[in-house]
Design a protein around this nucleic acid. Structure first.
Length: 174
DNA sequence: GTCACGATTTGT
DNA sequence: CAAATCGTGACG
């Protein structure tokens, strides 16, 4: 069964909704697939922890761009982190992918595992080698909400979402 | 141009 | 706890 590619409108919504709904979806890069199990939302105005907090710069340009694209940034001189751009074009908002089943646990490790680099920055997630698809069967499970990891500003906001005990209806019947 | 720092990870 | 390692953004 062919998985369905998430449409642009999925991403053109409030960042928190997109973050929550990204859990259980299938991330694909060069044919490698894995379920997204941990994400964090980074908002526009008012979120001092977000790269977009101080407006549009050369680096943060794609965060303000059309939804459904990848925002990849280079951090600590050695790691690439993958984000999914949300909100309608012109509004900042993105979702950091922190853990993908089978790829790795941690935003820097999962990109290194499959070779995602700055080349993927700005890539369209509805087509091309980097895509996100809906699983054949919807993933059910409990979602844990916690503060975001590794930030000092706006640190109390409950914007980290983790899929705990995810399952599909089929696997549940086994 | 200069400089402090970071949405991380790993080893001590 | 500290190192690794370098682009970005603020300042001038």
């Amino acid at each position: 069964m062919a998985l369905r590619v998430l449409p642009r409108k999925f991403y053109a919504r409030p960042t928190v909704e997109v973050a929550r709904d990204l859990l259980g979806q299938v991330l694909e890069f060069r044919g490698l697939q894995g379920r997204i199990v941990e994400v964090e939302a980074y908002l526009g105005e008012g979120d001092l922890a977000a790269h977009s907090a101080r407006g549009m710069t050369p680096r943060t340009r794609v965060i303000f761009g059309p939804p459904g694209h990848a925002y990849v940034y280079f951090i600590y001189g050695m790691y690439y982190c993958l984000n999914v751009v949300a909100e309608p074009e012109g509004t900042a908002g993105c979702v950091l992918i922190r853990s993908v089943e089978g790829w790795g646990d941690g935003p820097g490790k999962l990109t290194r595992a499959v070779g995602i680099t700055l080349e993927e920055n700005g890539a369209d997630l509805t087509r091309g080698p980097l895509r996100i698809l809906a699983p054949a069967e919807p993933v059910r499970g409990e979602v844990e909400v916690t503060p975001r990891v590794g930030i000092s500003q706006s640190a109390h906001l409950p914007l980290r979402f983790v899929l705990r005990a995810g399952w599909t209806e089929a696997s549940r019947r086994e």
